[in-house]
Design a protein around this nucleic acid. Sequence first.
DNA 1: TATTAACAATAACACTGTTATAGAAAATTT
DNA 2: AAATTTTCTATAACAGTGTTATTGTTAATA
Lengths: 211, 211
Amino acid sequence: MKANKVTNFRVVREKHQQELRRGILDDVSNLLVQKGPNAITMRRIADTVGCSTTILYTMFRNKQGLVDELYLRGFELLRQSLAAVSYVDDLRNYIYALCLSYRDFALANPTYYSIMFLKAIAEYTPSEANLKLGQASLELLVQAIRDCITDQPEAEEEAWEIARIIWATVHGHVGLELTGYANYSKASSQQMLERALQALVNELLPTIDQG
Amino acid sequence: MKANKVTNFRVVREKHQQELRRGILDDVSNLLVQKGPNAITMRRIADTVGCSTTILYTMFRNKQGLVDELYLRGFELLRQSLAAVSYVDDLRNYIYALCLSYRDFALANPTYYSIMFLKAIAEYTPSEANLKLGQASLELLVQAIRDCITDQPEAEEEAWEIARIIWATVHGHVGLELTGYANYSKASSQQMLERALQALVNELLPTIDQG
DNA sequence: TATTAACAATAACACTGTTATAGAAAATTT
DNA sequence: AAATTTTCTATAACAGTGTTATTGTTAATA
């Protein structure tokens, strides 16, 4: 009975720990969004949360571990952005919508995007495992492309390759936009991205040209 | 005479200052390339150069000012990379070569590229003026595109727009490559970039399709 | 209740960018 | 040529960073 009691308590405390952990991450996330990546310091986090830095280190090992969670959160948000895109008429427009949703996410969450792709926190570089987890967030895009080329041989590899090409293009446009490199023409950044996407889809996914 | 002497001396000293300045920047550049962006600290620079930090502050105002120079150096190196590309057969291949040269520069100088486009040094964000100076390094690409569409109305704006689109694509591919996002297919990063470029040129510069 | 184990706050270490202080060197004036 | 002023630069400090050893407190066990 005693042992049972103890384990029960431990379970409860464990639960508490997880809630606390999530609470802290919420605070850190707010800090990130409102004050920017430079505000992510261990002392400041400890202050806002109301604990000492020691706790942060026992819970997250170090700053890398803490930012790891932000990194994964960012990709989860990105995944949700893509998942919120509803398939309307055809694959072609669906792919466009996914890419624009990607852009919207980046512009709406520039601080997250900076962590994910622009090395905004110098002390942080994602682990190999997290890089892969990140890429998995693009699964919906890959699936859409897969659906376009089911007839082709080696469709799986080809789908990933095309997805990667499209991804790189969207990322490039968004990246320049976020880094401040303006365009000299009247066209908006979104319009230019759309032009690029149309070109890519026309050439790389000709099967849905007359969609 | 005395006044003349003094000014002469001042001129010489001014010259010395400029040499010194360039020498320091060379050292900092080496530090950047060999030890990475994190090694760019004022104390470390002062140590390698053999002076106190005070001098760095009087010469470059602050770290921002010092990195500004690295930033401009990076774009100058990029410009030289592009300038080294010789026009061989036709505009189409010339544009491809420019883009691949851009990529080569980025891969050969990842630390410079990080400063220019990723936020590798947290304390640094380029000024509006430097952003424009940076973009000017792409003039050769813009000119090549201009040559393709001279017949079009508003060719100037259109040239910049297409250049920007192509730039974003190259930047995106390179960016993902440098940030560690691998591709799941067998195709090399260069091959995927080439596929993307072909698609873009086919669609955006149709006048040279049958080049 | 006494002892042991887990925990967390404080303060320290080695860094960072930046600057005020103080002292040395050079240029000017007498 | 001597005295004064100006210019410069090295030192040391301030406020901040990530991280951790020390120390005291709290909770779990015997």
